[in-house]
């Protein structure tokens, strides 16, 4: 091997061409090895990793819906009432994902409750809180702390949050009277903004 390399070093600089066999060496004598099992496994492995992550990338594209039919789900509230989202057709539904461990949710909670108090008497509007990845007693303590009086349900098995592809809390979806998503709100929301959106939907209905 050493002789090979020395030979090569004496060649003019630009004449290294990999197609030319190396000069005067034991290497030439050896028969070229076949593609080994290890090599095949290695290459398949690399491609497999790329495939897995490629599929994951495509899957990840599924983000929070901001239009189209709202994924339906059934839920049972903390105080034991069972519903399906389809039961609420004809009403504007505000779905808010929250958690007791989430800081921004705390900032948002009084705003939501205050907006709810504005609509409480209105039969056309439903507020629904979904406690994401939370623990029951803590969720209830949180609701008591902020005096939350609208419907709230735990997201058992994170089925609902998966259907909506949420990426964190708080996230809010507003579903219109036809069961379509009218608005997706990524971060915390204020009472006034919420009322603007919902009043807009209510007005649209009464005009149409």
């Amino acid at each position: 091997m050493a002789t090979t390399l020395n030979n090569k070093h004496q060649e003019p600089i630009l004449e290294t061409n990999e197609d030319e066999p190396l000069v005067g060496t034991e290497i030439e004598v050896e028969a070229p090895r076949k593609l080994g099992l290890g090599s095949i496994v290695l290459i398949i492995g690399v491609i497999a990793i790329a495939l897995v992550f490629g599929i994951a990338l495509v899957g990840q594209r599924q983000t929070q819906p901001d239009s189209g039919v709202a994924p339906t789900f059934s839920f049972e509230t903390f105080d034991g009432q069972a519903y399906n989202l389809t039961d609420l057709r004809g009403k504007v539904v505000m779905i808010n994902f929250w958690a007791s461990w989430c800081g921004p949710c705390r900032a948002e909670a009084p705003e939501l409750q205050s907006a709810w108090e504005y609509y409480q008497a209105n039969d056309e509007v439903v507020f629904l809180g979904i406690a994401y990845a939370d623990n029951g007693p803590r969720s209830i303590a949180y609701m008591e702390e902020f005096g939350i009086s609208y419907l709230n349900a735990p997201d058992l098995g994170t089925r609902i949050s998966e259907a909506y592809h949420i990426q964190g809390v708080p996230e809010t979806f507003i579903v219109d009277q036809d069961g379509n998503i009218a608005q997706f709100i990524y971060a915390g929301i204020s009472r006034d903004r919420l009322i603007t959106i919902i009043d807009g939907l209510l007005a649209r209905e009464s005009v149409g």
Binding site: L22, I27, E30, P32, R33, K34, L35, S39, L42, I43, V46
Partner: peptide, 12 residues
Amino acid sequence: FVLIIWRRSRGE
């Protein structure tokens, strides 16, 4: 990796 496998198969 393919370059490595190729050079190796040539005994280099």
